[in-house]
Amino acid sequence: MQGTIDSQTTAITADHGHEHPDFRVLGLLVFLISESLMFGGLFAAYLLLRGMHAQWPPEGTEVELLVPTINTLLLLSSSFVIHYGDVAIKRDDVRSMRKWYWITAAMGAVFLGGQVYEYLTLGYGLRTNVFANCFYVMTGFHGLHVFVGILLILGVIWRSRRPGHYSAQKHTGVTMAEIYWHFVDVIWIILFTLLYILTRF
């Protein structure tokens, strides 16, 4: 009985294999599939509710466009800004990576500020009607993701204060924060289309 086993294990590899390649980026991408489905569920619920109502949004609910449009442009451009940070770290330029990441975090913060401003000035609250329910839950949930994205970026900036923590060869954390930020951006584009643009038609 033992013989069958040893035939499998005779060959010996020298290395102990304690280290394996870094799979964190792959792990994040797999996780983001799950996140997309979470937003996907919200979008599906929203579209089903929208399909049920003859008038959408209901009478008396006016959707603001000015602040959200500015916000959208801000968030879209921040995706380019953060990419400059990634380009910088690939050139081993930690200082300019930090600069671009600071700018991205600031743009994210302004986006959240704009969101809060919109919440405070809108003519409807969370409970007003089903559209308002969807509006606040969806934008709020997305805002939470923007907040997490800002925390990730600040985390990268915090870690990069130590010289040599990130380099042209070793910058997984920087890349992951960037990927997450792009994801949040893409979700916003769909959200903006559904909640703002399509309510105009």
Binding site: S34, G41, L126, N129, V137
Partner: peptide
């Protein structure tokens, strides 16, 4: 599939506790 359940339950949580009407 799990994230979709999470969404369904969170909307239910809002309906129970925060006065929404999904």
């Amino acid at each position: 599939s799990t994230p979709v359940l999470a969404v369904g339950l969170i909307l239910l949580l809002f309906d129970i506790n925060f006065g929404t009407s999904f």
